[in-house]
Nucleic acid binder design. Sequence first.
DNA 1: CTTGACCCTGGACCATGGTCCAACCGGCAT
DNA 2: ATGCCGGTTGGACCATGGTCCAGGGTCAAG
Lengths: 159, 159
Amino acid sequence: MGNFKIGELAAAAGVGRDTIRYYERMGLLREPARTAAGYRLYDATDLERVNFIRSAQELGFTLEQARQLLALRASDTAHAQAVLDITLAKIADAEARLERLSDIRDMLRMLADECPGEVPVSDCPILAFLTARRKDQQHNKKHQAAQDERSPRAKGVLS
Amino acid sequence: MGNFKIGELAAAAGVGRDTIRYYERMGLLREPARTAAGYRLYDATDLERVNFIRSAQELGFTLEQARQLLALRASDTAHAQAVLDITLAKIADAEARLERLSDIRDMLRMLADECPGEVPVSDCPILAFLTARRKDQQHNKKHQAAQDERSPRAKGVLS
DNA sequence: CTTGACCCTGGACCATGGTCCAACCGGCAT
DNA sequence: ATGCCGGTTGGACCATGGTCCAGGGTCAAG
């Protein structure tokens, strides 16, 4: 079983050395064996783990969720349902974001369509909109307040 | 012209006092007048500015972009085109995100649909996918490398 | 023997948009 | 005069996912 040093693992996985050490600190990678000189020694299973993490990230999972998925994978009692639950939550999250984002895009598009460009900024409907729009907000605020929507800000799916 | 203190401005705008001071540090609000005791004194135009900023944020603009929009609004030579340009860039950005995000959602949905839940994790197709998928990535990497897509990470539209 | 490439550690720093803190001062009611 | 609310400052801290640095040690080649 070919062991490799951190730089080799990093290169093989297409990440930086620091990223490997970071994953180790975050508990995503086990503490590796060491040479007499203290160099970390990895094997194919470590590479596979890093690849797994990167794949999970590309599907919008956070490192924390990747950690959970790895834990589930390592379990011999867990059901696939647990993985499915995480995935379904991620999908719901993605859908909520998609809706908010496409609402924003629609609004921006409407405003852009109305803006003739060749006028002084004082006639810009986009700025006019931004300047005037405070009733809806109060409205929205009430809604939010009513739901007591706390702000520990959006995590997950796509930066 | 009723002057108000920071807490009153904050309450009127629906933000925290610290947020007001933060906006001032970031150059979004002018340095306000002060009382003899050093208290900040605001007026209706400051409230309007904070409202403008919040509106811009709701449309996905960053604080930096809000700053630019405010500067344009204050200019008497600028064309509405400048505002339109920022808006169009934001739309393009939103559309790119929408596409990436809906691709992810589709992928997750496909995987979720294939996952029967009531099997041991070792038979979970989601984990299998994450475990196996390393050819495509190399492929994607090449694409990215070719475009020299640098990573000063995604800013703008929606957290 | 020296050079260069690699590795180690601990800690600082990046962006974003704030939030919270201590330690202090001002102003009003009781 | 005492409490209490509100204001002031500078700075630390939150999450996220790393990146970079200084100040060393290691190891193979020339």
